[in-house]
Write a protein that binds this DNA or RNA. Structure first.
Length: 932
DNA sequence: CCTGTCACG
DNA sequence: GACGTACGTGACAGGG
């Protein structure tokens, strides 16, 4: 039947259905394999209830479920911040999206989407077409953005409240009829979609204005006539922004569709298809209900043995047996594995390579597992050997599939949204695959699953996890590669040995996932894992692969200069000491200073050696010339060995750039750690050290941007501990250390001296670290009693601090962990210990929520940043705890700063409403020294 | 492999 | 009552 007069079209907002289903249900997983399935279940129930209810005169003749597709739409081209403050889709929802499409098809309902358009636009276009053809339309959604479509036979239905919305319903909501809804929305804006609107004008005022002037254009043209000065001003000043807002909320009725209304005719579901799908999802109740109403036999859904139990007990799994693993050596066997994976919907993956550096290591083999005890290894690049340890340079060992053929076959699975790829430290494998043209997604990571639950309790490496959660000791890599000088690379391992080791890794990863993933929700860290851990993997992978350009000549010139300085200082030191010795040896130095020269203050540490740290030498510098020379020598030596020399070794010969690696699960507080090389401790505090940063340069035609949070930890402390005076100072944009000093010492801000401010600054930091009189005294080099006096006064003036400290420690003692504002859990197993450990654990517990919350904030910013700057010629290169470094095309600096700053300053929203503003400072330059 | 030292936030 | 203490990291050199 063609669509025309007398026809009734139902348009269902698919995304709304999915999100409602997702949030309405607990995180259910499919019994047989643990795949997340809650949203699909809810979706099917809602769809079923909808179909059942379609009887009588209002029943539709045509129906479609409309989905969003892709996160980038034409609205982002108009306004790059459109929907920028949206929370990222929960990672356990993502793999369910394709399943909801299949569910719709299983119900024999048309399922439509269009790349680059929102569902709302498709709904608008279809509504217009249906209206033009003389038919009726019901839009099943409660989204107010769709209300502009109501009227002339188009109505909305809020399925949840079973409430029909017609022209009068729209008037109730917006104070205007549907044809003026966009005008009101343009003025009022929308915080959910990040439509700016006119500041200070809400729906009420907007409707008032529109009704008075007729429409938005007239209002804006005659804005000068508006009586209220505030409103007049905001209308005049924000005209462009209001007009942009209107374009953003205006739905597109001309969406290019590749189907017609006739294609949407209502069809009865085919029992076999629908029940088959429900059986596959293991929805027993719904399957029974539907087969009853269709009058057919319900299919038997076998009660699968739970391999992914919801209980913390280890699953019944076969013993780990490396002899049982399969070596995949022909394409037919590979195809069998691919079919298995597709059937399962998930697979544990592990790569073997020639080294630990993902940027230079070559792929040697891939292992897979999708059921405990069943794993395979696909050798790809093992070298032919003579059996005596000699290897051919180019000949491959027999019995291996061609690498390209294997990657071509695996790529569709590894990139399939509906197949979850599980790994241990997936960032490593994802980067390796990326270098071979495969973008692995979506992923789960057992290392991060462990980290979210057990940070502070134990390590998260595979060996430690296997030991603890599977009571199994994996084959040590050393047994294959050896160690030290005679160590070999994995491509020289015999294939038979490699199969056992590599397949075991995949098997163990899969088993760990089965045991640990369901425990995330028991420890209430599912959201932490889904929003702060898992989505960070692709972000960091991209940053690491981008790397940063480092100028070798600059470094090498500095190295030479440092060599000369060191030689000169060394000669002076030997002269002053009266003998030659190894200046770099603290042991020899201690003996010279305290035994031979009998300088005061020699204290032996627990190993019996004298301490010669910078603080000790600093105190001695008044006594003798030698300690100052040593300090100078050490500074130069450090800069040379750790930076100007070592950094050159890290320049990748192919890219000319330095590629660090971030460990996500390294620091207990949620901070990242940078290794190989560590780019989070490049000197900045001294003038000489800062010059190292001149070697970190922008590529030609580009500029480096540095954006850093100002005082983020103190701001978070002010919020968490609820310190009114601090909060106020931050809200007023005051110099926080000066403000603290003023409050503590009763000095007016105008009369503040640098020294008083410096002391207040030390106390502020001390508080964050779990202050002690001793520590503060040492830091400020003042008597301990005086330091304690400062602390007492601080607590007196800011009483919330003491309360926060006591509450935090009490919480830790009771629960064994502390938490950040975003729910990150940092375990404190030592908190109830006796002895010297106790103090450390206490201070760490006080510091962790503050440092950890700051770490969460910047993680959130980084995760959102990729999308936010996707349309700008910019990429994120480095993170240094409170700083993000970007490389951007010349000319785009200001645009990127604007967007990136907005993302960073708003990173806590909407999950946490901070009582203090987050402020981001920005700089730019040809190198890192200039940008910072 | 451990310890001391020092670079960063 | 004494003891030892600022929080979180990683890299390098020396020395067993």
């Amino acid at each position: 039947m063609g669509f025309g007069k007398g026809c009734h079209l139902h348009l269902i907002d698919g995304s709304a259905f999915i999100f409602r289903a997702y949030h309405a249900l607990p995180p259910l997983t499919r019994k047989s394999d643990g795949v997340p399935i809650g949203a699909v279940s809810g979706f099917c129930n809602m769809l079923h209830r909808y179909v059942e209810g379609n009887t009588g005169p209002d029943a539709p003749t045509h129906v479609a479920v409309i989905f969003d597709k892709g996160s980038h739409t034409f609205r982002n081209d108009m306004y790059d911040l459109y929907k920028a403050n949206r929370e990222a889709m929960p990672e356990d929802l993502r793999p369910q999206i394709p399943l909801t499409r299949r569910a719709t098809e299983a119900f024999n309902v048309a399922c439509k989407e269009l790349e680059g358009y929102e569902a709302d636009d498709i709904i608008a276009t279809l509504s217009c077409q249906a209206r033009a053809a003389g038919g009726r339309v019901t839009i099943i959604s409660s989204d107010k953005d769709l209300m502009q479509l109501v009227g002339d036979g188009v109505e909305m239905l809020d399925a949840m409240k079973n409430l029909r919305i017609d022209r009068d319903g729209v008037f109730e909501k917006f104070g205007v009829y549907p044809d003026r809804v966009v005008d009101v929305q343009a003025l009022a804006g929308d915080s959910v979609d990040n439509v700016p609107g006119a500041p200070g004008i809400g729906i009420k005022t907007a409707a008032l204005l529109i009704n008075e002037y007729g429409d938005l254009e007239t209002l804006l043209d005659r804005a000068e006539e508006v009586k209220q000065p505030k409103r007049r001003q905001t209308l005049v000043e924000n005209r462009a922004q209001i007009e942009l807002s209107k374009r953003l909320v205006q739905l597109d009725c001309e969406t290019p569709l590749d189907f017609t209304l006739d294609d949407l005719e209502v069809k009865a579901p085919e029992a076999e298809v629908l029940l088959g799908f429900l059986a596959e999802m293991e929805f027993r109740t719904l399957s029974k209900r539907i087969s009853d109403s269709l009058g057919v036999e319900a299919p038997e859904i076998p009660e699968a043995p739970a391999t992914a139990p919801d209980l913390p007990d280890a699953p019944e799994a076969p013993a780990i047996d490396p002899e049982a693993y399969e070596c995949v050596a022909d394409m037919a066997a590979l195809e069998v594995w691919i079919a298995r994976i597709r059937e399962r919907g998930y697979v544990a993956v592990d790569t073997e390579t020639t080294g630990l550096n993902e940027m230079t290591a070559d792929l040697v083999g891939i292992s897979l597992a999708c059921e405990a005890g069943q794993a395979c290894y696909i050798p790809l690049a093992h070298r032919a050997g003579d059996g005596e340890g000699l290897f051919s340079d180019d000949a491959l060992a027999a019995g291996q599939l061609p690498l390209n053929a294997v990657l071509d076959a695996l790529k569709p699975v590894l990139e399939d949204d509906a197949v979850l790829k599980i790994g241990q430290n997936m960032k490593y494998d994802a980067k390796i695959f990326a270098r071979y043209g495969v973008q692995v997604a979506p992923i789960d990571d057992t290392m991060l699953i462990s980290y979210a639950q057990h940070a502070g309790e134990h390590g998260h490496g595979m060996d430690a996890l296997a030991e603890r959660y599977l009571s199994h000791t994996p084959i040590p890599i050393k047994s294959l590669l050896g160690s030290g000088k005679s160590m070999i690379t994995f491509d020289k391992v015999k294939i038979a040995d490699a199969v056992k080791y590599a397949a075991e890794d995949a098997d163990i990863t899969l088993r760990l996932w089965q045991v640990m993933k369901p425990q995330l929700h028991l420890r209430k860290v599912t959201t932490v894992y889904e929003t702060l851990e898992r989505p960070l993997v692709p972000v960091l992978a991209r940053m690491e692969m981008a790397g940063i350009k480092v100028d070798r000549n600059t470094l090498s010139r500095m190295s030479n200069a440092f060599s000369q300085t060191m030689a000169r200082l060394e000669a002076e030191i030997h002269e002053l000491a009266g003998e030659t010795f190894n200046v770099g040896s603290p042991k020899q130095l201690g003996e010279i200073l305290f035994d031979k020269m009998s300088l005061p203050g020699g204290k032996r540490g627990k190993t019996g050696a004298y301490g010669t740290g910078a603080d000790v030498l600093e105190d001695l510098a008044t006594e003798h010339e030698l300690p100052r020379r040593i300090l100078d020598w050490r500074q130069v030596s450090k800069l040379k060995s750790t930076y100007t020399d070592a950094l050159q070794e890290h320049i990748n010969p192919e890219t000319g750039r330095v590629h660090t690696s971030y460990s996500i699960a390294g620091a207990n507080t949620g901070r990242l750690a940078s290794t190989d090389p560590n780019l989070q401790n490049i000197p900045v505090r001294t003038e000489e050290g800062r010059r190292i940063r001149e070697a970190f340069v922008a590529d030609s035609g580009k500029v480096l941007l540095s954006l850093d949070y100002s005082q983020i930890e103190l701001r978070i402390l002010a919020h968490i501990a609820g310190i009114e005076a601090l909060k106020e100072a931050f809200r007023d944009g005051q110099d926080i250390h000066a403000a603290t000093a003023s409050e503590m010492f009763n000095v007016p801000m105008a009369e503040m001296t640098p020294d008083v401010r410096r002391q207040a600054k030390a106390i502020n930091f001390g508080v964050i670290y779990g202050i002690s009189g001793f520590g503060l005294a040492r830091n400020l080099r003042i008597p301990r009693a005086e330091a304690q006096g400062f602390i007492d006064r601080y607590f007196e003036r800011f009483p919330g601090i003491r309360e926060y400290m006591d509450d935090t420690v009490a919480f830790a003692k009771e629960h064994g962990f502390v938490q950040t504002l975003f729910g990150r859990r940092i375990n404190t197993p030592e908190i109830n210990a006796k002895g010297p450990h106790a103090g450390f654990a206490r201070r760490a517990a006080i510091n962790a929520p503050i440092q950890g919350t700051a770490a969460d904030v910047i993680r959130r910013a980084m995760i959102r940043m990729d999308d936010a700057i996707a349309h700008l010629p910019a990429r994120m290169l480095l993170q240094v705890h409170d700083e993000l470094l970007f490389e951007v095309d010349q000319g785009a600096e200001d645009a990127v700063i604007k967007v990136a700053r907005e993302v960073m300053e708003g990173a806590a929203d909407p999950a946490v409403k901070l009582a203090v503003p987050l402020v981001v400072d920005a700089g730019k330059g040809a190198n890192w020294a200039e940008a910072h």
